[in-house]
Amino acid sequence: MISVLVCIANLVYGTSQSIRIWKKRRRSDAVFLLVLTLYITGYFVPFTAPYWPTVQKVNRALFQPISDFLLHFLQIRTENP
């Protein structure tokens, strides 16, 4: 429910502000805001949300092997007893 409301508010705000900026002839800013709005919307749409990148997914993909290797190599236990 909250996510749906935020998604609608995001679309309304982003579109209206993009149009306002476009009319002031700062077209690159308007396009940037519109792309940002559509990108944020992707996190709330059920079909796209699982595929949209998050920092957690990206960093896990990049650093999990390094972390696993180093923790094993240094014999460090991070989990609680």
């Binding site: 996510s3 935020v6 508010a9 995001n10 705000y13 982003g14 502000q17 306002r20 900026i21 700062r26 690159s28 800013d29 940037f32 805001l33 940002l36 709005t37 990108y39 944020i40 996190y43 709330f44 949300a49 949209w52 998050t54 920092v55 957690q56």
Partner: peptide
């Protein structure tokens, strides 16, 4: 970085970006 002339209009969308990523993380 992107030479935005009116950054105030982007504050709320950036906040919503944090919220959107936050709902899908951890």
């Amino acid at each position: 970085l992107f030479r935005i002339q009116e950054p105030k209009r982007f504050i709320l969308p950036f906040g919503l970006l944090f919220f959107a990523i936050g709902t899908r993380s951890y």
